[in-house]
Each structure stands twice: as C-alpha cells, then as structure tokens.
C-alpha cells in the first residue's frame, strides 16, 4: 500500500445520501479478475444523466468526494473502492459510512473521513469553487477560508495509512499467537478445526 499523508485538491460536491455500492459500480463490472480499470464503470447510472458532475470539467479528476449520510451501503464489493480509486478519488468525506465500505476504502489507502453534517454542508459550499485540504497526520480538514474541521481516525488505521503498511505482512508476524489460539481451539472445540 502507498503511504498517504495528505490529500489536497478540488472536491466533487456530491452530497447525496444512502449511495449504495450498486450505484458506485453496477454488478456487470464485477466480472473482472483484476483490480484496475474499473473507473470507466464508476457511477455509471449517474453519469448517464446530462450535466452530471463527474463529467463536468470543473470537477472531473478531483481527488476528493463529498457525500451524504450512509455512503457505500449495500454490497461488500471492494470494486466500489477500486473504481473510485481508478477515477482518481483518494478521499471521501461524509457524515457516515457503511462499515464494510469504510473498511474497503482503508485497505486501498483511501481516506473515509466522517465529519458532522454541518461541516459537510460547509465543505459542499467551498467545493463549488475552491480546493479542500485533508491532513491525516494532524487529523484535520481545512480550507483557504480558515475552516478547520478535526476528524477521528482509529490509531491502527492511521498508522497503516501514514506508513503504507501491508496489513497481511503485519499479521503474519503474529504467527505464534495465532498458532497458540488454534491449539486451544483444538482442545476446546475439536470439531471446528482438524489437527495436523
């Protein structure tokens, strides 16, 4: 995973609530066996609408998406995060995220930042004309107009993101602890795990 310290640039003032992962990437795009190239299908049904902001030259290619409540609900498809990354999105700001989407975003080095509705409303306004700055190290979103919105971030996730850590590699270093747990399991619930 690539290390990420901050994300700066224009933002899509999207703002819609309950955006499900079928909207982010429809199922017909899930037949791929690769992680890349899904940007083409990202927000496909919305992009079929005339004057959609994703194809508006004012916003196209923005690294930040500002969304409404419950972003990424529905299916667990990580293709949603891959598709957004492929279209150049590095961070999403919303009042809340579905649990699975925020996990998937994290695994792909994409920031899923929760801010109160009022802060999101203010950033929606700024995004119409000006860039937004996200500082992960200091956990704050700022604008050129002295706005300053601190955000929460799980310390484990923050560390992984800042240092671009490979989570599987980290867990594999805990091999002894996992092996001990399996040994206990074989004792206590032998039906769950065959012994070797």
């Amino acid at each position: 995973m690539k290390a990420i310290k901050c994300v700066s640039g224009r933002a899509y003032p999207f703002g819609r609530e309950n955006i499900d992962t079928d909207i982010i990437i429809p199922a017909k795009w899930l037949k791929t066996i690769s992680r890349t190239g899904l940007g083409e299908g990202a927000f496909e049904t919305l992009r079929a609408e005339a004057d959609n902001m994703f194809d508006n030259p004012e916003y196209a290619g923005s690294p930040i998406l500002i969304a409404g409540d419950n972003f990424g609900c529905g299916s667990s498809r990580e293709h949603a995060a891959w598709a957004m990354a492929d279209m150049g999105i590095a961070a999403v700001i919303a009042p809340s995220f579905s649990d699975i989407f925020s996990g998937n975003a994290f695994k792909n080095g994409m920031l899923a930042i929760e801010l109160p509705q009022e802060a999101v409303d203010r950033l929606m306004e700024v995004a119409q004309t000006d860039p937004i700055h996200i500082d992960l190290e200091n956990q704050v979103v700022t604008t050129a107009f002295q706005d300053r919105f601190p955000f929460e971030m799980d310390s484990f996730r923050k560390n992984c993101l800042l240092n671009g850590l490979d989570e599987i590699g980290l867990t594999m270093q805990r091999d002894n602890a996992i092996t001990d747990h399996e040994a206990d399991l074989q004792q206590q619930q032998p039906w769950l795990i065959p012994s070797r």
Partner: peptide
C-alpha cells in the same frame, strides 16, 4: 459478516482479521 476482497486475502493468508 461480509468482507471486501482485501479482507478475503487476509483471511486466506492468516485465518484472522483485524
């Protein structure tokens, strides 16, 4: 519970999740 593909890979490699 449902997981994304990175977590699928994590479970395959380690039989665990963070």
């Amino acid at each position: 519970f449902g997981i994304g593909t990175s977590e699928v890979e994590h479970v395959m490699a380690t039989q665990t999740l963070m």
